[in-house]
């Protein structure tokens, strides 16, 4: 029996399968960097498909890569005595693992795929090497960290400080 595929579905399929088209999507790290610097990072990119339910960043475990989400959605979570606190969801263009890579401290949040995700991985060692050579990357680093902080502050602002019962946690989606 023949399968009918619309043009839109085929375009979507191509965009998911073709890594080159994914790299053209803007992300928090590359936007604002010079073409030369973006070129340096592009040479190091490794693509991965990560199924829904898998963790991109694990709590308490130092990441080996910087992770850039190309497609799909992820949820950012904080844990407190066995309670899961979802801070919000993010999608294409979001960068994860940066704070842990730079500070050497283990992540305080967990990032889990809530859809199948296509991600770019940039090895930690290479990322830190480039960062040392080009201090201008720190501006992008500061912007990424600021966006993480804004998410946390927005959560605090929107939460009732009187009580935060499990399951009653407001989630902020971008």
């Amino acid at each position: 029996m023949p399968v009918t595929v619309t043009v839109m579905e085929f375009a979507l399929y191509l965009s998911r399968m073709n890594p080159i088209s994914q790299t053209e999507l803007p992300n928090e790290l590359y936007s604002g960097l010079s073409a030369e610097l973006v070129g340096e990072f592009r040479q190091l990119e490794e693509f991965r498909m990560v199924p829904s339910g898998m963790k991109l960043v694990q709590l308490g475990r130092l990441p080996e890569h910087l992770v850039i989400v190309c497609s799909g959605r992820v949820e950012i979570r904080v844990f407190s005595s066995g309670q899961t606190i979802p801070l919000g969801t993010r999608g294409a263009g979001k960068v994860f693992g940066l704070r842990a890579l730079i500070s050497g401290e283990t992540p305080e949040t967990e990032v889990i795929c809530i859809e199948d995700c296509r991600v770019i991985l940039i090895p930690k060692k290479e990322f830190l090497r480039i960062l040392q050579v080009y201090p201008q990357i720190y501006f992008a680093v500061a912007r990424i960290m600021s966006s993480d902080l804004a998410l946390a502050h927005g959560f605090l602002k929107n939460s009732s400080r009187r009580s935060l019962k499990p399951g009653a946690v407001p989630s902020m989606n971008s």
Binding site: F79, S81, I85, L87, L149, A152, L156, L164
Partner: peptide
Amino acid sequence: CAYEEIRSLAL
């Protein structure tokens, strides 16, 4: 600090 505050909200 922000994550600490969020964790303490839950506790």
